[in-house]
Amino acid sequence: MRVAVIGAGALGCTFAALLDRAGHDVTLVARGAQLEAVSASGIHLNGGFGDWQTTKLVAVPRLETPPTPGGDFDLVFLAVKAQDTATAIAEHGGAIDGTPVIVVQNGLDGVDTVSKSLVDSSCVGALSIVAASYLEPGSVRVTTPATTYIGRGTGDPDAEVRRIEAELGDALRLTAIGNFVGAQWTKLLVNQLNALPAITGLSVQEVVADRTLRLIMTRSMRETVRVGAATGIRFGSIQGLGNLRLRFFARLPVVLGQALPARFASRMGPVPNPGSTLQSIRRGQRTEIDFLNGAVVRQARLVGRRAPVNETLTALVHEVEKTGVFFTPRQVADAVAGAEAGTSAGSSAGSLR
C-alpha cells in the first residue's frame, strides 16, 4: 500500500516506521532537523514495538499535487496536532483530497474539521493510546505500546473502517470500534494525563506519585466526565473504560477516584513518560492544550456550566508556554482551589477534598 504520513512527531514517526516494517511504501512529511535526519538515515524506532530502522521510507517537505485527485497514495495518515490542522490542509490538501484520510488526533473536532476541508476524501478517526517520545531527530522511543482505535460517528464500524482494520490492523494494532464520538470523549479523559506534566515539568509517573497533583488530576478527570454527561454523551469503550464505569467514577469521592490516574501511570511502566504536551513545551512548540482541557471548558459553557479545574490547567499550561517557568505542586493546588472558589487563579489556597 502507498501511504503518506503528514506529521513527523512522535506518533507520526511511530506509525511511519511500523508501516515501513510491514512492507508498505511510506512517504513521511517532515521539516527542519527532522526532515534532514530522516532523509539521511530514516527513522530509528525502539521501545515497546521492538527495534526497527526504516529501510524504504521517504521523507519530503511537502506533498506534490498529482495529475488526478488522490492519485499518488492509497491512504493518508494526518498526524499533526489539532492546532496545526488548518495549516496542514492548506499545504497538502490539493495532494490528498480524494484519498481516504485517517485523522490521528486528540480532541473532539478532528474528523469533522478535515471532512469539511477535504470534501472528496473519506475521513476516518483514530484514537491512539500509544505513548511515544521524540528523543531527537530521526529517533522515537515507544514507552507504552497500545491499541489505536479507529471509527467514525456514533454507530457501528462501517465497511471502510473494517477494511482498514483488516489491512493495517496487525502492523499498527488497529481496532475498529463503534460509537467513535463517545470514544473521543473517553480519550479526552485519558488526555488529562498531559496538562500537569506540562505545568510542573515532571513525568506522568512523577505527577501521579505526588498526592497533591494526583488529586488535582482526578478532579480534572471527574470534571471531564461530568461535562460529557451533561452534553448527553454516551462514553465509548476504550482501554477497559466505558460509559457505566466512567459515570460511576464521576460519582466517587475524589480520594477513591484517584485509583484511575494511578492505574494509567502503572501501565506506563518505569520509563519516565513526559506526555505529549510537555514534549511540545520542551521543543518550544505551541501545545494542543486548547483542544484537550480547553475542549472540556468550551463544552461546559455550551451547557451553561463551568469547568474550573480544566480552565485553570489550560491557563497554567499557557503560562508555561509563555514564560518557560514551571509551577510547584503547591502553586497548582492554590490556583485550582482559587478557581473552584470562583476567584482568580492562584488567589486562594484550599484543600483538595
Rank of each mutant, 00 (worst) to 15 (best):
P270I: 01
S276R: 11
N293F: 09
S280A: 14
Q285V: 03
A315N: 05
R305T: 00
V303I: 04
Q299I: 04
L292Q: 15
L278M: 04
L316P: 02
D290C: 00
N293D: 14
L316Y: 03
A315S: 12
L313A: 08
A307D: 03
V303W: 01
T312K: 10
G275R: 15
R283M: 14
Q279C: 05
P308C: 09
A295K: 00
Q285S: 11
G304C: 12
A300F: 00
A300V: 06
P308R: 09
Q299V: 09
R283K: 15
V271D: 12
F291H: 14
P308K: 09
T314I: 12
A307R: 04
S276K: 11
P308W: 02
P308Y: 03
G275K: 15
P270Q: 08
R282H: 15
L302T: 14
Q285R: 13
Q279V: 03
R301N: 13
Q299F: 10
R306H: 02
E311T: 06
T314E: 13
A295M: 00
R301T: 13
G294N: 05
R306L: 00
T287D: 06
G284S: 13
G284N: 13
S276P: 12
F291V: 11
S280F: 00
R306A: 06
R301V: 14
G294Q: 04
V309T: 15
A300N: 06
Q279M: 05
V309L: 07
T312P: 09
N310H: 07
I281W: 06
D290M: 01
L313T: 05
Q299W: 09
T277I: 08
Q279D: 07
G294L: 01
P274S: 07
Q299C: 11
E311V: 02
L302H: 05
T312S: 14
A295T: 01
Q279E: 14
G304R: 10
F291Y: 15
V271G: 03
Q285A: 13
R286P: 10
P274C: 05
Q285L: 13
G294C: 03
S276N: 15
T277H: 10
V309P: 14
N310Y: 05
R305D: 00
N273W: 06
P272Q: 00
